[in-house]
């Protein structure tokens, strides 16, 4: 059994109890993915599995045999930050930086969901194309907690890059 993490095949754990989050952090030493609550309430552990955002604390590593997992360490290309990563720095979308990898992975997954037309609580028409207004982004990012309160900067960074500004 193996998983593909940031493009590299890695073995799955022998102990079936190991979460994807703990496997990333403790076995693969990819500590960019954070553990905030270990029960799906904070979003700090968000990673991308084939482009979809998941909470790695609620996933068992052995469930992801053969799947492509992307963590925050896998977003930079050729040594250059992903545009959203750079925008987080520019817009001060964090303070302590602990929720940040989860916010960034979640935002990338969120933009892809909107692209696919996945509606949210705020969508008036469930079958219409999604426009990522500020409120739509806020709603769709509400599973990612930030106790430092960098929410304004996070939304600014998302709007400046992967979800271009539209009228609210």
């Amino acid at each position: 059994m193996s998983l593909i993490v940031n493009g590299t095949a890695v073995p799955a754990p022998a102990d079936a109890r190991v979460s994807l989050l703990d496997h990333l952090r403790e076995t693969l030493h990819l500590t960019g993915t954070k553990k905030g609550c270990n029960q799906g309430a904070c979003g700090a552990c968000t990673v991308l599995v084939e482009g979809e955002r998941i909470l790695s604390c609620l996933a068992l590593a052995v469930q992801y045999d053969g799947r492509q997992v992307t963590t925050v360490e896998g977003l930079a290309q050729d040594g250059a930050l992903h545009p959203l990563q750079a925008a987080f720095v520019e817009h001060d979308g964090f303070q302590c930086g602990y929720c940040t990898p989860g916010q960034i992975c979640s935002a990338i997954g969120m933009a892809a969901e909107a692209q696919r037309g996945v509606p949210s609580y705020l969508s008036d028409d469930l079958s219409a194309d999604t426009t990522l207004t500020r409120a739509e982004i806020q709603e769709r990012m509400s599973g990612n907690l930030c106790r430092c309160g960098a929410y304004n900067g996070i939304i600014d960074a998302i709007q400046a890059t992967i979800a271009p500004k539209v009228p609210a």
């Binding site: 500590t31 925050v72 930050l81 987080f88 720095v89 964090f94 940040t100 990898p101 960034i104």
Partner: peptide
């Protein structure tokens, strides 16, 4: 900033 947004 760059360290924090890249997991470093």
């Amino acid at each position: 900033g760059a360290l924090k947004v890249s997991g470093g």
